[in-house]
């Protein structure tokens, strides 16, 4: 079996250099590659373009790379939880492209499936459609306008999984799955950090979410904080 294991986050991100485009998994702070983000802060690569559904919070997640001013451009669907992000955006330091969440997911999926474009109705008639090619299709008895959207072309994808093996196979847990599987499929080089790196044969092939062919580097992360953005509970 091909071995995809690298020693740690530092080794995994060693060739992520200035001006690269990264796909970063996670929804809010759920399922984010904590170890790789910390390693990137340490490495100091600058002028990064990051594609991620959100931009973290001020002091966690991608917010850490914003604080250290390593991000030139963010492509996200929702950025409401980060004051430093807002400051950098309004002052013009940070370039921001907001795109519909389903478009974001599907542009990753398209890359992983080798399809250069998709057509989606999301954003038709809005400022998201400005400058984009549209076509009208009749499908399921409904005639609608669709926007052409391009598959992402990213130098690296950085994802977080629950379990993985040395062959790069990944299993995600609960809603920490979110964008991670399709981003894993979409990177020219994909780095996966996992909570638990298990022996070959321990993962049931029927249960694998991302086959190892999509994962070029894998390592077991450490000291996961797994911060919760909004703890909402009910009394016993």
């Amino acid at each position: 079996m091909i071995n995809r294991v690298v020693k740690n986050a530092e080794e995994a991100v060693k060739d992520i250099t200035d001006n690269m485009t990264l796909l970063v998994g996670g929804f809010g702070l759920c399922g984010i590659p904590e170890n790789c983000i910390s390693a990137l802060v340490k490495k100091g690569s600058k002028n990064l373009t990051c594609v991620s559904n959100n931009a973290g919070v001020d002091d966690f997640g991608l917010g850490l790379l914003l604080q250290s001013k390593q991000i030139k451009k963010m492509i996200s669907s929702y950025v409401g939880e980060n004051a430093e992000f807002e400051r950098q955006m309004l002052s013009g330091e940070l370039e921001v492209e907001l795109i519909p969440q389903g478009t974001l997911a599907t542009r990753c999926m398209a890359a992983g499936y080798g399809m250069p474009v998709i057509y989606t109705p999301a954003g038709v008639g809005t400022e998201v459609a400005i400058g984009k090619e549209t076509r009208t299709f009749t499908y399921n008895g409904e005639t609608k306008e669709y926007l052409m959207e391009h598959a992402f072309e990213a130098d690296f994808a950085i994802v977080k999984a629950w379990k993985g093996d040395s062959a790069g196979n990944l299993i995600f847990r609960s809603t920490a799955r979110n964008f991670n599987p399709m981003m894993a499929m979409a990177g020219k080089i994909t780095i996966a950090e996992v909570e638990e790196l298990v022996e070959l044969g321990e993962l049931d092939p029927d249960q694998i979410h991302t086959p190892g062919i999509y994962v070029h580097r894998i390592f077991q992360g450490e000291n996961y904080e797994k911060r919760i953005e909004q703890v909402t509970v009910r009394k016993k």
Binding site: F27, G28, L29, C30, G31, E81, W162, R173, S174, T175, A176, K226, R227, I228, E229, Q230, V231, T232, V233, R234, K235, K236
Partner: peptide, 19 residues
């Protein structure tokens, strides 16, 4: 519904980022 106090799971949130 929201989890019972103490049983919240960081891997299980809704689209509003609530447990």
């Amino acid at each position: 519904p929201f989890p019972i106090e103490g049983e919240e799971d960081a891997d299980l949130i809704n689209a509003g980022k609530q447990t």
